[in-house]
Design a protein around this nucleic acid. Sequence first.
DNA 1: CCCGCTGTATGAAACGTTTCAAGCTGACAA
DNA 2: TTGTCAGCTTGAAACGTTTCATACAGCGGG
Lengths: 344, 344
Amino acid sequence: MTGRVGIKDVARQAGVSVGTVSNVINNPALVTEETLIRVRAAIEQLGYVRSESARQLRAGQSRIVAMLVLDLANPFFAEAAKGAERALREADLGVMVCNSAGSASEESEYLALFAEHRVRGVLVTPADAGSRTVETLRSQGLPFVLVDRALPAGEGCSVSVDDVLGGTLAVRHLVDRGHRHIAFVGGPGDLPQVRDRFTGARDAAREAGLPDDALVTVEAERLDVSAGCDAGARLLGMSPRPSAAFCANDLLALGVLQALFAAGVRAPEDIALVGYDDIEFAAAAAVPLTSVRQPAARIGRTAAELLLAESHGDPATHTHQRIVLQPELVVRTSSRTPARPHAL
Amino acid sequence: MTGRVGIKDVARQAGVSVGTVSNVINNPALVTEETLIRVRAAIEQLGYVRSESARQLRAGQSRIVAMLVLDLANPFFAEAAKGAERALREADLGVMVCNSAGSASEESEYLALFAEHRVRGVLVTPADAGSRTVETLRSQGLPFVLVDRALPAGEGCSVSVDDVLGGTLAVRHLVDRGHRHIAFVGGPGDLPQVRDRFTGARDAAREAGLPDDALVTVEAERLDVSAGCDAGARLLGMSPRPSAAFCANDLLALGVLQALFAAGVRAPEDIALVGYDDIEFAAAAAVPLTSVRQPAARIGRTAAELLLAESHGDPATHTHQRIVLQPELVVRTSSRTPARPHAL
DNA sequence: CCCGCTGTATGAAACGTTTCAAGCTGACAA
DNA sequence: TTGTCAGCTTGAAACGTTTCATACAGCGGG
């Protein structure tokens, strides 16, 4: 029954006008105590629930923020989504979390959906390497914040992590432990995140005076566990075999670890491993994984806050922010070999 | 600019009435080829995007389905959400995935939000053991499907997995491998899922003629990795020490595994382990985890389909369905000890 | 006694769609 | 010629809010 009760019915029941009912809900201060009570009783009695769509129609924008991630099943994004959700709940906004599965076409379908819904804004990790996503959003006039991806100053808000630094931290750590032959296990080449992590890794290798071929790349199909497993198998077949591997992603690292274990190769004794993201399962693996920590929940929360700032303030005064958080190396067992002497 | 363009502007631009524009969008068959082209050109030119809220207002219901899970960061729910999302996209519906974090108050806040949005339906895993959630939904007249939780016949649709059977499979397997002293690592007692898994485990123990104290319970605070780690530590302190552990959840099992490893206790040689859910990280653990597989994606998809059936057909003819899927034991290394002779 | 003020309540307009009865046109049959 | 019908288009109503100009009542001051 409750579905068909409108503000008009409440007004009739309470013997007041619709305007008054609206005021009871939105500006109780303008209404007499007595009326307040009568109207509230009517609301209660009829089981009235106000209609968001009508509100939105009037207001011109909805109370929903959309979040579009590359992979909902990746704990990094799940954490980020939780962080964003928490911040947005506080602002009394709903969140619509969606999954582009890394596909540009899915992504653009969702973007169209968001536009139709007149969402308050979009938190998005673009699936394409280019900037088509950003252009689409801008042309639709939707406020947006890029998540886990930086944007040139002035082009829009973004919250990301310094992936180059992350790569450097990882490989510097391995070099410090005496490793001189290191594999970089990376995903499909066009993802900026992966590229940056590699760049950082190379920097660290050079900084240590290693030749460029000290760092070899093992290509993975995707950024998930099974792709990591495949890559791990290939890694084991290499000769000379690297003594350490830096993976672009914890999912890959876990896959590699599994491949090593299956082949009877021990970590960290035979091959040291460093992952990226520091998802919960990195610490939980039987050989706890050294990883570059990204503050996933904070990324999500910060992005949400930026979006709120952008959509509240008037567009004229708003200046886009480009927030870059620092990653942090978390050393665990998977790389904890005794530091070996440099020579020999 | 694009935000302010309505169907009226398109009509004016194309020199037709608003009704015709609406037809172009929704019933192109009713419109002359020529008009079609003219109107489409106008739409293109003005960058018109139709307003969902206005549509909804007219239609009385939205094109969004809400999904409320216990923990978005739990891969089981993430998978289920992906499954549901896929099915709903096919029906051209948006999904709003939300996270109750197991809190009844968060849950009821979200339920209120969903009601205001007049969502098409709700896919929910209730946070409370009772049926308050179900009552709320019913009183709001929202179609709903319970996910990973069964409901007495006729009270509503539900898609769940036979958790009692799952528990039986797990413990029967351990008994077959010769284990006579088994720990059940369970979460907070009031979750029906956990209770059922324990019931199944006890059944299997009895069926094998074991005394009731052959199965001892180790209580965990929550159903996550760190709680599993704590429980694992307690498990190791028990005397006599069980030779196997069945965990209510893979997250717990991974935590236990970590605790064992830290203490130098090997799996499966010293303690065999069986988890529940078969999340991706179960297979990916360095000691791949034997687990009771729940078809998470299929649960999500099935629930979505049920919801569609319920909201499409008229309520009169609709009969609630109670779908119970069968779990499946996936044997991996963590329990793969040579079967020992029963005697001794 | 009138004026202007404050505190409340009113009712209509507007938001952008979809739907639907009614109108218009041209063609064909009687 | 008239009537009928099909095909296409129209314009207004309705959906449920919020907002805003207006009205009304009571009251103190001039």
